[in-house]
Design a protein around this nucleic acid. Structure first.
Length: 338
DNA sequence: CGAATTTGACCTGCGC
DNA sequence: GCGCAGGTCAAATTCG
């Protein structure tokens, strides 16, 4: 029954939330403050490991073929996600006086559990059969979201056609809180909006975003038991940057990579967590080098920003036990994938 | 013809 | 309480 705030207060990161607008951190490049995230992590070379702990199978990097053009740089060496982002937000650059690169900017939002039945009055989100939603499983109307992640409206959730049953379910949902699952946001320099990531997605909506000329698209994993969602939008600040935000954890493996050869190859380049990067610049984030001495546990940087204010947050510290892994630092146990 | 996308309507949350 | 913006639904449309 904790509400967001309560939980956030328990989270080291969330301390900072108190200084930020309501829900938290603002994603650099995000169209507006509404689109905020609670934590922003910038991963280093072993982002794949971190992500896998979230239940992701090393999301393959966006297909390099259709990604970006890196003005004056050789991105290829980087491989991986990294269609590199140069300083996405100069405000964050701070002491950055040279090319600051965000190899993979990954943001994560833990609005923590806000419980609910899903978002909004429409059913929706249930659980991936996983633990993720177990505790906040919508009891009432969308009882079996696992079976019908989308058609929760079976019980009358149709948005446009209110019915008595719908009304009833709405009532039930009232008072319940919205759950927000872990989010990762990748900022990618790319000419195409929807980057290949190894999973299959179905678009279920598109909205214009305030203060941004670019619409935001909403996708849902096509796996019926998977409730992972994805948002894709272009940065209003830098149209060449695509911000892809994933929410939730996949409860299945990827479906294979369409351009497996290329992608896997590049992914491989990124998949050696323990390998010291050949090019240290990879691990710079807005001018701040990643702490390579502790790649295993500290490659995540966090920052927040509000109206130009930039903070580099102190990362939780010590390496967790092996089974805790990185998530021990950043993911509430209840959100873990196993 | 089935699957995926588009799109307008509607719901919720939040700020004022 | 009201209005705005984000998020979602589902019918209609398009695509393979």
């Amino acid at each position: 029954m904790d509400d967001d705030r309560d939980r956030l207060d328990m989270d080291p990161v969330s301390e900072f939330n108190t200084t930020v607008s309501s829900s938290g951190w603002t994603l650099p490049g995000a169209a507006d403050a509404h689109d905020s995230v609670d934590n922003v992590y910038f991963f280093g070379s072993n982002s794949d490991r971190i992500l896998s702990e979230f239940g992701w199978n090393l999301p393959p990097p966006p297909a390099a073929t259709h990604a970006f053009k890196e003005p004056g740089g050789s991105c290829s060496a980087r491989g991986g996600y990294g269609e590199l982002d140069r300083i996405i937000d100069s405000d964050l650059a701070g002491n950055c006086d040279k090319t600051s690169i965000v190899p993979e900017s990954t943001t994560s939002t833990f609005a923590t559990t806000a419980a609910t039945t899903s978002s909004g009055g429409y059913g929706g989100g249930g659980g991936c059969g996983g633990e993720m939603d177990a505790e906040q499983q919508p009891v009432a109307s969308s009882s079996s979201s696992e079976d019908q992640p989308e058609k929760s409206t079976a019980s009358g959730g149709s948005a446009s056609k209110p019915t008595t049953t719908e009304t009833a379910s709405k009532v039930k949902k009232k008072g319940q809180k919205r759950i927000r699952q872990p989010r990762f946001a990748f900022m990618t320099k790319s000419e195409v909006d929807h980057l290949e990531d190894g999973y299959r997605w179905r678009k279920y909506g598109q909205k214009a975003v305030k203060n941004s000329p670019f619409p935001r698209s909403y996708y849902r994993c096509t796996n019926t038991k998977c409730t992972v969602k994805k948002r894709v939008e272009r940065s209003s600040e830098d149209p060449t940057i695509v911000i892809t935000t994933y929410e939730g954890q996949h409860c299945h493996h990827t479906v294979g990579f369409p351009r497996s050869g290329l992608i896997n190859h590049e992914a491989a380049a990124f998949a050696s967590p323990l390998t010291t990067p050949s090019n240290p610049s990879q691990f710079y984030y807005t001018g701040v080098p990643f702490p390579q001495e502790s790649l295993l546990t500290r490659e995540s940087f966090q920052y927040s920003r509000e109206g130009g204010d930039t903070r580099i947050l102190p990362e939780p510290t010590a390496p967790q036990s092996t089974d805790e892994g990185l998530l021990g630092d950043i993911v509430p146990p209840g959100m873990r994938n196993t």
